[in-house]
Amino acid sequence: MLFPKLKRIYFYLAYLIFAILYITVSLVAPLGPNRFNLSTSRTHALQLTILLPVVVIWLAAIYGVEKFHSYARLIRKSKDGQALYIMSAGLMILVGSILFNGLIGIVRPWALKDGWLSAYTVFNNYVAVLLPLIAYYVMHTGSRALLKSIKARSSRLSWAGIIILLAVTGAGYIAALMSYDYRTQTPDPSKYNSFYISTPLILATIALPYIIGWALALRAVVNLNQYRKQVKGVIYKRSLFRLEVGIVTVTVFYMFLQLLVAFSTYLAKANLGSILLFLYVLIILYALGFMIIASGTSKLTAIEKIR
């Protein structure tokens, strides 16, 4: 079974290592020209206003996922416990991918400076695609096991909704990719990002896995919702509702973040204040999702521990 026995300390130790690396490496990274014409000290100050909230969000994510993992581990011998354990493993991979992508992101200035930006970008893009895809697959597997534990099925109406939502989102995402001028090459890497691979490869190995990942994520949250609706237990359902809201918030947020990367060219046209405000709103929502997960699992844990 995935992640058989992870002590609480390992979560926070991993967090501490990632956070320290993230901040220090970001601050010593070579500075390129920026479009806001800021001095070095002002650039570092601006970096800190983004780095510190990100590190706080990571802490919220680690806290939420650790609580969920501890709860699932507590009941992992039962059918619902095994299913929730798999879901918690999926969420753990998702959080891991957020931290890992954050770390990879800070290497970019060196890749830009030393001329290996294309190799770096290809690697970064595939990690950003693969890890969440694995996470969503594992979460989906757990959600299916959860439904199976009460011999329930997801409603056809929900599937129809997911297909329509995916068709619209997927079409918008592919349209944004196709309309981007610097898709395969960029004249100025400091200004415009590029995938550094051919268009068919972008569609087959980046866009398609993203859309498959979103489908799995949406199916996982719909399955969890169906489980809560069909499972017995008034008190249990109330506690599970918080966990569900938290998982939905975090999953939808991450999907949104992936979409945002595709639309980043539009965001790049905005002014600094708008970008920061937008980032902070996203960050707060994200942290809130993990805090709701922690709150839901605390209530569920209370049911399991009370005597």
Partner: peptide, 20 residues
């Protein structure tokens, strides 16, 4: 108790019986 605690009810009842 399943009507109140759902899948947690068996674990809950077994625990109370053993402990109290």
């Amino acid at each position: 108790t399943e009507e109140y605690l759902g899948p947690a009810s068996e674990r809950f009842i077994y625990r109370l019986i053993r402990f109290h």
